[in-house]
Design a protein around this nucleic acid. Structure first.
Lengths: 343, 343
DNA sequence: TGTCCCATTGTGAAGGTTCACATCACCCAA
DNA sequence: TTGGGTGATGTGAACCTTCACAATGGGACA
């Protein structure tokens, strides 16, 4: 066992070693002016010698700034935006605390999660695709700390960052109609999820606007198997279709399998579209036509926005920054899972 | 804009409101004995009234315990173990700080990441599948704070939690040999990754032990497209094979596509095996035979181990807990991507 | 030579919680 | 009635950094 340094050095320890006061050490560490060159060198040597590191907790206590952001994830919002957010939070010089909310419906669990880190966090980034809490409530729970929501309701009056699901869904339906499809089925994600819900209503609306029949409503939970079972349910319903819009790419994979088992070929018999454009989608059989969402941009913007809120709120004590929603537009990636309907 | 509570209440504020000393409030909050029932009620009312929450930073400063764990992720170790670890850290009552190390090869970046959170973290959980740092070095960088490594070298003398990749690879090879395969190719993950490297050497060793020829070494990077290009490379090499072992499930998906494009049927012409058993694997075409690793168990055990290290190290100042490696065994999931070799 | 300025360095207090210890009142037994 | 025990409550200091302000000394300038 190597000799473990049980006690971390403090400003005072460094000061004693360098033969100056802790204030002088502080000035050197913070690179303030008005320190004699010779003193600075002596202090720097002592800092290296003792491997001094400022005590974050003490800094937080005195300054009220922690440079920590809390990333709150609500069930179902796990996968896609997370890596980019983690990355960009670090890129902006913050440390990130991740909190997973098990029960997104209960504001008690949200309150508990916020209590845990009270005083400890400069702001919150919430990936919150469910409708359970409103702005006032969240604002109150956050105790005035800045927050930004991601993947939440399009059009909500909160500081937020979202994809325009309506736009994505419209691109999908227009693409399919352009290929000559007239009977277009949809298996959505969970309908209490904002993204999934909006995609679903958008698809239905677009079909209606084009005078097409809306098929039976089947909803999954964004998981592969729910895509699989959803298709079986749809086939069992007897509603005939030549194109199928799935709630996301994972569900689309399940759909491909279910269709194949039912003896239907993709895209010859049925065209299939997904959402998200996960890296695997291009390697599905056949490669999946899907709606790409640039999660890296979403992640960067959400962090940038939150950081700007934090900084303005620290600049003036009362003003909380303007409330805006930053909307990003998805892009249809056309691959081989869609083709013109057979005459 | 709702009235934001800019200033959080402190013990003293509560004490003033309740007409007692801060010490008494503290006793009530910490549920210590020796507080009169009537006083306790008055204090509790004041706590609720002011929505008092202890200041974590101040607690850390005085006690030296933060109840925060740092989860360090090295490039490539992203996906699988992360959700379970996040979950179990919270389950054990800790808060989690996630740090992504961009450049796993440089100990400077590790040192910087550790500086960031020095004094702030009770222990570290490192998902570190690369060989760049040894025990002594890490121990020194951690400044004596307990740490546990996950997905690291099998057989390393560190506090660690791993899957037995050798065992998994052996199950795969024996399964294929049992099906009559004699020419078994492999496309590994990145060879500087412990898991991928061990799988690779294990597969080769097993083949040799069974007197079978070892094909050309092709390595990918765990990504779908590297599986795809790896297979093309393998096919181009002209080495004939009836079974193919892929570095993980994502790469296996790429392989399925490449084989199909080359006019080879799976499993009729080639049997394919993956590693990990991601949820999608059962929905590949054909459903993938793969090696399941229970990341939930790995996650739980790693957290449990780390927490126990922290607690013993706080119980006695000098003893750092026993060094052990907890090894878990993977399980072969046989699906339709493997079948007896055609006579 | 005295005064002012400025570079350099130091002192004291604050921030909120924790812990050891002190104080006070009260009850019971000797 | 007094001493010891105990329950209830309060005081002071410590943890480490930060910040406002004080102090010192030397040089420049009048």
């Amino acid at each position: 066992m190597p000799d473990v340094q049980l006690k971390q050095a403090t400003l005072r320890d460094v000061a004693d070693l360098a033969g100056v006061s802790y204030q002088t050490v502080w000035r050197v560490v913070k690179e303030h002016p008005h320190v004699a060159e010779e003193t600075r060198r002596r202090v720097q040597a002592a800092v290296r010698e003792l491997d001094y590191r400022p005590h974050r907790a003490a800094q937080v206590l005195t300054t009220g700034r922690s440079y920590i952001l809390q990333l709150m994830i609500f069930e179902g919002g796990y996968g896609n935006p997370l890596p980019a957010m983690l990355h960009w939070i670090q890129e902006y010089g913050y440390t990130v605390v991740v909190t997973e909310i098990r029960d997104a419906t209960s504001r008690e669990s949200v309150r508990a999660a916020l209590r845990e880190t009270a005083h400890m966090v400069d702001g919150l980034l919430m990936v919150m695709p469910y409708a359970h809490l409103g702005y006032e409530e969240l604002s109150e729970l956050c105790q005035g700390r800045p927050f930004v929501m991601a993947c939440t309701k399009l059009g909500s009056r909160m500081p937020s960052v979202v994809f325009d699901q309506w736009n994505g869904a419209r691109q999908v339906v227009e693409h399919l109609i352009g290929l000559g499809h007239r009977r277009i089925a949809e298996i959505s994600g969970p309908l209490d999820n904002y993204d999934a819900g909006l995609r679903h209503t958008s698809v239905s609306r677009c079909l209606e606007l084009n005078g097409l029949e809306v098929g039976p409503t089947v909803a999954g939970d964004f998981d592969v198997c729910s895509g699989y079972s959803g298709v079986r349910e749809l086939l069992a319903s007897g509603w005939d279709f030549s194109a199928l819009v799935m709630g996301n790419d994972h569900m689309a994979l399940g759909a491909l399998r279910a269709l194949r088992e039912a003896g239907l070929r993709v895209p010859e018999d049925v065209s299939v579209v997904g959402f998200d454009d996960i890296p695997e989608a291009a390697y599905f059989d056949p490669p999946l036509t899907t709606v790409r969402q640039d999660f890296d941009v979403l992640g960067r913007e959400s962090v940038e926005y939150l950081v700007s809120l934090i900084e303005t709120s620290h600049a003036s004590e009362t003003w909380r920054g303007s409330v805006q929603q930053r909307v990003f537009y998805p892009e249809l990636m056309i691959r081989q899972s869609t083709r013109p309907v057979c005459a």
